[in-house]
Write a protein that binds this DNA or RNA. Sequence first.
DNA 1: AGAGTCAGTTGTGATAAAAAACCTAATGCC
DNA 2: GGCATTAGGTTTTTTATCACAACTGACTCT
Lengths: 165, 165
Amino acid sequence: MGRTADYTNERCSIAATLEVVGDPWTLLILRDAFAGVKRFEQWQERLGVARNVLASRLKSLVAHGVMEAQRYSERPPRQEYVLTPKGLDLSPLLLTMAEWGDQHVYGIGKGPVHFVHKTCGCDFHPRLACEACGEVIDRRDLRRVVHETSQTVGEALEAVKIPAE
Amino acid sequence: MGRTADYTNERCSIAATLEVVGDPWTLLILRDAFAGVKRFEQWQERLGVARNVLASRLKSLVAHGVMEAQRYSERPPRQEYVLTPKGLDLSPLLLTMAEWGDQHVYGIGKGPVHFVHKTCGCDFHPRLACEACGEVIDRRDLRRVVHETSQTVGEALEAVKIPAE
DNA sequence: AGAGTCAGTTGTGATAAAAAACCTAATGCC
DNA sequence: GGCATTAGGTTTTTTATCACAACTGACTCT
């Protein structure tokens, strides 16, 4: 009801993803997690995000099973946040975003970070391939099929949410 | 300042992409654009988004060159919004988001929409492939290289922005 | 003439995010 | 012992942005 875009009544996998990682800051938190950041203060310093917002985002990512809080000290209670397999599966999303930003904002090769494909030695640029046949696809090679599903994003998320302890 | 995360001082292609399409609603607007929506009232009805927010998002997408406003009536002034090539290049991003939502929220095959790869006939699931060698990659096949770039997101965006007339 | 459509603009108020201060418990250092 | 510092947050206050709804033009349809 309040202010935010509420994606929970949509019936859409894109909206479902947005509901988990679509908050402001969340994707930058994840980007840094992929770069090796694990602790509150590191994120706070690198992003300059408000501490309350950072705390709430980390809590939400844990609740959604994208990150896991691991104790590394009992007293004082200290925890590190590490990506779960579900979180690691977001890497294609981040790489795809980086590619678009590179191509259309910075200009190819002018972006601040790029990747090298170790097995072929070339600069890495992602393309989408079909898992089944391995072929690189074009948008027009796809046919969209609508499935009758009664679940909204909210309902589907309820089923995978990790209860706070 | 206010509420939003301000990505413009980051030096990062992911942040650059977020600055263009990271607003609440924007990606759903684009999703619907890929599904064929072109007009204000169609988006408004399908998304239930506030009209002022929709107007501002469309304006921003046009300013960033992701959509183009095409006149189809002079009086009264009416326009349709269509995706530019830059906007069409966001399709991998949307497909990747849909795939993650499918796998980790709805469950594989239970999502509301899926795609069929016409050339091989199979259900389409995207994987990232290396443009150079065509091989499907794993996250660990990549080496991250940091580039010395002085441009922030804000500076880079300034250079590609389309001036309002 | 009156009702309806399309594409917005213009208020007003609610609320989540930002900023900054504060807290707790431990640890380092002289 | 006493004081500063660090880590990981929570609390309080302020503010920018969103939601809601009403309104505006310029037409079209009946």
